[in-house]
Computed example of a mutant assay.
Amino acid sequence: MAQDTPIAEPATPDLPYRIVGFDVGDRRIGVALSDPLGFTAQPLFTLHRTNRRADMKAVARVLRKHAVTEAVVGNPLYMSGDQSPQAAKAQAFAEEIRAEFGITIHLWDERLSTTQAHRHLDDAGHAAMGRKGIIDQVAAVLILQSWLDARAARHKREEAL
């Protein structure tokens, strides 16, 4: 079951804008980006982490270059739904982005996203060797696309009422 925990409200909800998705790890961060209308997610790049300052500088470039107003950060909970140590790190990263850049952040349950990413690459015939550079991007796409799909379904339900 997915969860959407917004940390703030969007600044301009009626205008087209881009949304960035992050799959946060200790060594790498997968980055995905929505199309301008917020329907699909595409891989952007993998950020190889060095230090907090460099990480935030890279995030700032993405936000500025793509006019990002919202971010979805994968929240890797345990299968039981309890918070994992990695979830605490992802939540801290999300809070840093919100505090530093003032954009809306959504925490999104990403249980099994990396497993799903491996399956997608298997299905596409991508060899297991050399996945390190793209697996985080694929996971970020799956996180962001899942959130976009859930948002579209929520809007559709609201319109039906």
Rank of each mutant, 00 (worst) to 15 (best):
A94G: 07
A60I: 05
E110A: 11
A60D: 13
A117K: 09
T46L: 04
S84W: 05
W108Q: 12
R49F: 10
F45Q: 11
N51F: 09
P76C: 06
L107H: 06
I103C: 04
F93G: 01
S113W: 11
A71E: 00
T115L: 15
V68P: 00
A60K: 10
E95R: 08
T69E: 12
Q83T: 14
T114G: 10
F101L: 04
K57N: 12
L107F: 13
R49G: 12
S80V: 11
P76N: 07
F39A: 14
D82E: 15
H48L: 15
F45T: 10
A41W: 02
V62P: 05
Q42K: 14
F101S: 03
Q91D: 13
Q83G: 05
K89V: 11
L107Q: 08
L47Y: 07
F101G: 01
L77Q: 09
V59T: 08
D82S: 11
S113M: 15
K65C: 09
H66P: 02
D55P: 08
Q86T: 12
R61T: 08
A94L: 07
G38P: 03
H48K: 14
Q83I: 14
H66T: 01
A41F: 06
T69S: 10
A32Q: 05
R61H: 09
A41H: 04
L33S: 03
E95S: 09
